[in-house]
Design a protein around this nucleic acid. Structure first.
Length: 111
DNA sequence: GTATTGACGGCTA
DNA sequence: CTAGCCGCCAATA
């Protein structure tokens, strides 16, 4: 079993995502100090039961919803995102694509 | 012990 | 734009 600290870090990284903002699984894992653990982040979210956790702000690096179109989670996530002012079309987020790196999230896609 | 799977990611064609 | 391929880690069969 993975150390709970890793789980905690991932959850913390997810909670750190500002409202109306999104991030990729790999990005979350990276911020949690666990580079390359994108799948772990996904697993954590799949197992999480915290209603206070903004899991809906986590998508794929492509800015796409991780669930298949038409799925329960798919609708749930897209709806929640829209509720935050995020434009979601065909399971894809428009405008607020997931930042590839923390620098890009802070400084923006400049340079 | 190996094989398979998954809320992944990046590169190449 | 999509499709294919490979690398990645952890859980499960």
């Amino acid at each position: 079993m993975s150390d709970k600290t890793s789980i905690e870090r991932i959850l913390a990284a997810v909670r750190a995502i500002p409202r109306g903002q999104v991030a990729g699984y790999g990005e979350v894992a990276r911020r949690a100090g666990l580079p390359g653990r994108a799948r772990l982040a996904a697993r954590v979210l799949s197992e999480n039961a915290d209603p206070k956790l903004p899991w809906h702000r986590v998508l794929r690096s492509d800015g796409r919803i991780a669930f298949p179109e038409g799925s329960r989670g798919y609708r749930e996530q897209s709806q929640r995102l829209r509720a935050e002012g995020v434009s979601v079309v065909k399971g894809r987020v428009r405008g607020v694509k997931a930042a590839r790196s923390v620098e890009e999230l802070i400084w923006g896609p400049e340079d």
